[in-house]
Design a protein around this nucleic acid. Sequence first.
DNA 1: ACTTATTCCTGCGTGC
DNA 2: TGCACGCAGGAATAAG
Length: 278
Amino acid sequence: MPELPEVETSRNYLKQTLLNSKIISVQFNVLKLRWKINLDIKFFLNNMIIIKIDRIGKYILIKTSNKKTLILHLGMSGYLSVSKFNYKKIKHDHMIINFERKNGEKKKLVFNDQRRFGHIDLYDTSNLNNHFLIKNLGIDALSEDLKIDFLKKTFSMKKTTIKTVLLDQKIICGIGNIYASEILFYSKIYPLKKACHLNALETTLLLDKIKFVLTKAILNGGTTIKDYKKPDGKVGYFKQKLKVYGREKLKCYDCESIILKIDINKRATYICPQCQKK
DNA sequence: ACTTATTCCTGCGTGC
DNA sequence: TGCACGCAGGAATAAG
């Protein structure tokens, strides 16, 4: 769920509400998500102003006036929500940040993650690229720095399937299981094809479709399959626009062939056998 | 040095 | 209705 478009949608909303706000207090209701949480985060964040909200891959980076960055990863089932100050916490609300907007309005930022695969950490902003979760990330999928020559070179060295490569955050970061299927469908590439067997034309098309699919998903507020919500509590509408993901046994919109579901590295992968020839 | 399998959680749908 | 099982959008780490 929370792949690049969902994280970007969340970030855009947070920018509107959170920027220039002052953090009043931070509450943790859990000691550990994917990893142990450093509870000192509370003390570092108290009274700090939120000055910037960035994103790299699937990470949201909230930068504060004391040169710290709150690193948030939504895992599989996480979502952020901005709520009224009298909000009553519900199950799996793991972190609540009370903040005051510039106009004096008090609100809460809530991090909810049912499956606890998400992560919360705080790190020096100037040293962010050395954080263990950030340092190995590849180029963000929507970055201008993601260039065709890089992809050609990288793919040529990879003997594994192109779908596996698309999901590898150390190469390109931001693409998850849903958008990998969608991007490969639009590119008319068979997901089990070895990355090193892609020709120049296919690679060019793939790069184009990475940008196209992710951008279109952001415009639709991301994809809600089950848990994901935007910070205003509403769902994303890209699910209705998915071409293959979750459409096993249904007809391809383009050619009416039956969509197949296959397993790649124990992850569901959807293909149109006609549009995506081996 | 690469690639693949396992593992961390909770909850829901399916089939017996 | 109850229970066991498989499965779910992530990704570091262990194992091969």
